[in-house]
């Protein structure tokens, strides 16, 4: 066992973890944050995407002990004062969610993109979510969702 300290969604944790544990296992099994999904387990599908120290990572490719001292943001951390994030609202409003499995990772990638570049072109949005696979939507609605989110964020909705 190894003791680590990290911050997840604004809350500090001190945890005893197994050396072999990955970040995704820590989030799901230790902290019960089940929004983050495991798809391929090889960094290809992006379903497990979280934001680690300001950058998106696939949490299936990060060992839990590596996250010692880090700040992690998961889909659960996007709500504030009981209100969902504008990107989440925009995804709902345009119908960017079908089965929903890719959605948390997709939204984390969209958030990281908009944090860095608040006004991306459609092409830049496509590149921003290029590490997240969706087998339902055909992506157009997702890109629409991110575009709408830009408006929502500007309007402070």
């Amino acid at each position: 066992m190894k003791e680590i300290q990290l911050n997840v969604n604004g809350k500090d944790y001190s945890l005893n973890i197994d050396e072999n544990m990955r970040l995704i296992d820590l989030l799901r099994d230790k902290l019960g944050l089940l929004g983050t999904k495991e798809g391929c387990g090889e960094g290809e599908c992006g379903a497990c995407t979280v934001i680690m120290d300001g950058e998106t990572v696939t949490s299936c490719l990060v060992m839990a002990f590596q996250a010692h001292g880090s700040e992690i943001l998961t889909i659960e951390g996007l709500e504030s004062n009981g209100k969902i994030h504008p990107i989440q609202q925009a995804f709902i409003d345009v119908g960017a969610v079908q089965c929903g499995f890719c959605t948390p990772g997709m939204i984390m990638s969209a958030k990281a993109l908009l944090d860095k570049n608040p006004n991306p072109t459609r092409e830049e949005i496509r590149e921003g979510i290029s590490g997240n696979l969706c087998r339902c939507t055909g992506y157009n609605k997702i890109v629409d969702g991110v575009e709408l989110a830009i408006n929502y964020i500007e309007e402070g909705k």
Partner: peptide
């Protein structure tokens, strides 16, 4: 290389 997530790490 890879994807944004892979390039970040």
């Amino acid at each position: 290389v890879g994807s944004p997530q892979i390039r970040n790490k």
